[in-house]
Design a protein around this nucleic acid. Structure first.
Lengths: 316, 316
DNA sequence: GTGAAAGCGCTAACAG
DNA sequence: CTGTTAGCGCTTTCAC
């Protein structure tokens, strides 16, 4: 057929509202859709475990439509990551789910991967690119902004706020920096809250024993811009320091423990399970159903207190 | 085949892990799945409009698998409801989505409908029955409990709490009563919060002009156990009463307006769009995919403040 | 190039 | 009651 006739046929198809029967189509195709899952190893990492749980849920749901998942896990170090990069680059598939944990390395990887022209979904955090990638995750800046609001809530007297950064040896994404940005922005936008003072502390994950009482002298509120709020909570509990408001991220078991004890006041939930699920769901819709899909799916900023936390089950 | 042989075959099927190909099956069946949607007319009812939006979203998504929706809307009065009941009872279909807004009438309807042996999904509120129905919605009691926590939050001085009931002429479900139950329960469970005093006011929807200043003398906090918080907020704004904490339900446009103005402090979101979507999704999974499905799907209790409200788009 | 035919895995109708 | 077959709507192969 000439291009001209192709166009004519398409016009007629359009006119009569013809829709291809996707069941018949996929039945005839009789093919598997392979999606590569490129993530950090989830053992001992509750957050990534939840992501995988959502991914697995989607895998089971879409298996009947030919979806097959191929996992590429790496340890939390550069060497392991680079090794996996090679494997993923050599693997032919219909879509990629990817968490750009190591920022610089991920940029390089993506640049290389784009040559393959395979749709990419990023979860957890985002790398902008000239190519059209998809992001499933939170608006990190806005979540920090929200944290500002929660810290400030219903407080009139003088407040000393401590921003407590407990980071990994090799730091990964800049997510927590965006959160801190958003946090300060909230107070910048609300000049009337001039009773707040700020200070920051940074501790490496390995050096938790560096925690000492002096850090908290005069402090009324602590903002932990990642999932390690329980470390602060545990310290304060052990040293019997009370009346400090703590806000953190993620529903890790240990965070929940201190939320229930009333030591952590708020947790912002990133819904990792939903992220994983929606990531696969996106690839399924795009490749299997061949539908148009939005290329950003923001996860709502979910405020969790003791009274609206329910262990798993209902969320998805 | 005898029953004995049926069992044998099933055993072999089980053993070799045979899974029916649902694409081929539905292609061969070549049938439409009709789901009846039995809801109040949504015009001018933002909450129900959102429910319909979610339902429509699901309808579009599952149309390709043969799902067809048949709507039965009724006006907010008994006569209209009863009329629709007859139509729904006479309509042959593969599933029913139903909001039991009029409690007593709904019990009668359900009892009748159960004879037809068609799966029923209830959204928004729930009627218990000896038959296995599905519920998609919130735990009303727990949402009131959460409201208690939000009202109490970070407050030390004496507080006078007003529970403000603005009800329809014909009252529907007992949802708001369960919420009030939960609200009081929170304070019962937290004896240390003995600085809280409570009072209640009830006003009919039509008699909003009954609102007057005296109602709010000495009041620091208002709990509105349904979507009409904006009525209280508007009154307080007009009369320049400040420093009253308000908590209500549902992201109606007018509620959002006062949330953004800082007059309403918290809204609990019921995610009506998700409810509608999940209701249809449930019927689709049960009838089209013939999967096992949970018969309760709780919607999370979502706390909304100004900083984590985003107009639609990302939620679903 | 174009058009006919086989087959994807299942269901329902039909004949034996 | 059992076994065979046509056909659901599409893609791919194969013959022309």
């Amino acid at each position: 057929m000439t291009q001209e006739n192709v166009d004519k046929v398409n016009a007629i198809i359009e006119k009569y509202g013809y829709k291809r029967n996707i069941l018949a189509s996929n039945l005839a195709l009789n093919k598997k859709f392979h999606f590569a899952i490129f993530l950090p190893k989830y053992e001992n990492l509750e957050y990534w475990k939840s992501q995988i749980a959502g991914i697995e849920k989607a895998a089971i749901e879409f298996r009947k439509f030919g979806v097959v998942l191929d996992y590429f896990f790496y340890d939390f170090d550069m060497a392991s990551f680079r090794e996996s990069v090679q494997k993923v680059l050599n693997f032919e598939c219909d879509g990629l789910l990817f968490a750009p944990v190591f920022y610089d390395e991920s940029i390089r990887f993506l640049k290389e991967y784009e040559k393959k022209n395979i749709p990419v979904v990023m979860i957890d955090s985002h790398i902008k690119s000239n190519q059209e990638h998809t992001y499933v995750g939170q608006d990190a800046f806005q979540s920090g902004y929200l944290a500002g609001r929660l810290i400030s809530f219903a407080v009139k007297n003088e407040r000393q706020v401590l921003i407590f950064k407990i980071t990994r040896e090799i730091e990964s994404t800049s997510v927590y920096l965006q959160r801190i940005d958003g946090f300060y922005s909230f107070f910048k936008d609300h000049g009337e809250l001039n009773n707040f003072r700020f200070s920051e502390v940074t501790i490496k994950d390995s050096g938790i024993d560096q925690l000492h009482m002096d850090l908290f002298s005069g402090v009324n509120s602590v903002f932990v811009p990642n999932s390690r709020a329980y470390i602060v909570a545990r310290f304060l509990e052990k040293n019997n320091i009370k009346g400090v408001r703590i806000i953190g991220y993620d529903l890790l078991k240990e965070n929940i423990e201190y939320l229930n004890k009333g030591i952590i006041d708020f947790l912002i939930n990133q819904r990792p399970e939903e992220q994983g699920y929606m990531g696969i769901n996106h690839l399924y819709k795009k490749r299997v159903l061949q539908e148009a899909v939005e290329n950003t799916h923001y996860i709502p900023l979910e405020i969790i207190v003791k009274e609206n936390y329910f262990p798993a089950k209902k969320t998805l």
